[in-house]
Design a protein around this nucleic acid. Structure first.
Lengths: 210, 210
DNA sequence: TTCGCGACTGACGCACGTGTCATCCTGAGG
DNA sequence: CCTCAGGATGACACGTGCGTCAGTCGCGAA
């Protein structure tokens, strides 16, 4: 091991050769996430990632198939957690509270995972045809879920009559844009404020009744 | 001129050598727009553009500095038209009608220019640090404009009291996502329906009052 | 007919980033 | 002390796409 790489290890807290296998993987993953968030997929070079992680180029390929694979893994992890943060609304219970919980859970996750959220909201397009399709599919599923919920809500008279698909679109757009502002523009809004803002928007809209 | 390129000219309607200068430029621009929309900035190769336009590689560089420049020009044109589609709301007139006109104008423009809109909504991130900043700046300006309008509206009692910045975010998000669905997923919603949907969302929100 | 000019061409050289692999290193076990 | 296994290394070869520029083409003027 060269002197230079020893210096890097000291700087990043890596323990040099023969680190436990999963740990090294994790170390690369964490640094890659930061690099992707900072530069986006295309501008992020494998060299940047290995430099940040303090390992050699070859080491990277011991743990990941290629650049795309590590990117996909990073995004996938968030998508899985995102999916888990959503729960179906049961009309027998307190609907308002369930909606609030859902919104709260999602906003919480995205703000907690702000680095990955930034990647999801900006860096995900144009990686690859297959990857694009995958992301589109995911958001499509979320959209369908919400649309169904709104449809049910309309039946029960809890949601304004109207095009549920469009309503779902507006809601998702509002959420995406809020997260975008927080994550990209660095708004320091309180998590609870955003949740209440979104819920208020759902309930009352923007304009006072004329 | 080779036989191959003559064939191309026939196919694309180009008139071969010595076409009027502005026309050739326009021809390349139009085809570039389609290529960028289909593949995104990074996947779109200059070779794809010149092939689509039916001109030689060198010709491209007679009319455009480089790939980035033509991309920027395409996006800029839309941004300018977008800016012009927005007009300040005058509280002395019929506010509802002015809001409707604004929304209508913007939605109309974006759907009319659907190819460029697709580029704006998906292909714009990660081109270049400077370009990213520029786009961000533009949306920031739109955001400020809307925020001010909402603030004024609150003073006049026409807009629900609340965080105007957040309200602006939600509205822009809803608009962006609607356009995204139309342009990427190919929804064939009527322009007027989308406009009414957005306005209804602003006025009444999603949920019935409980 | 020949010349000049400007539009057009496309093969070429270059830069850059990727993934590989021959080699090195180190710690554990004999 | 020697050896060996396997993690780690980084120089290298390769591919890809970009921008250039020496040359072609065809039209109008002389």
């Amino acid at each position: 091991m060269t002197r230079a790489s020893v210096a890097k290890d000291l700087a990043t807290g890596a323990s040099g050769q023969c680190m436990e296998k999963g740990q090294r993987r994790q170390q690369i993953l964490v640094h890659a996430r930061e690099v992707f968030a900072k530069s986006g997929y295309h501008a992020a070079k494998v060299d940047d990632i290995v430099a940040a992680a303090g390992v050699a180029r070859g080491t990277f390929y011991l743990y990941f198939e290629d650049k795309r694979a590590i990117f996909e893994e990073i995004v996938d992890r968030l998508l899985v957690r995102f999916g888990m943060a959503i729960s179906r609304v049961d009309p027998k219970g307190d609907v308002d509270e369930q909606i609030r919980d859902n919104v709260r859970g999602i906003v919480h996750l995205l703000m907690e995972e702000s680095v990955t959220t930034k990647i999801l909201l900006t860096g995900v397009s144009g990686v690859d045809v297959a990857f694009d399709r995958k992301i589109q599919l995911f958001f499509g599923q979320v959209h369908s879920l919400l649309e169904e919920a709104l449809d049910d809500g309309q039946e029960l008279g809890m949601v304004s009559k109207g095009n549920a698909r469009m309503q779902a679109t507006f809601m998702i757009g509002a959420l995406k844009e809020s997260m975008y502002q927080v994550v990209i523009r660095g708004w320091d809004d309180d998590e609870a404020d955003i949740v209440e803002g979104l819920l208020g928007f759902m309930q009352r809209g923007l304009l006072t009744r004329g």
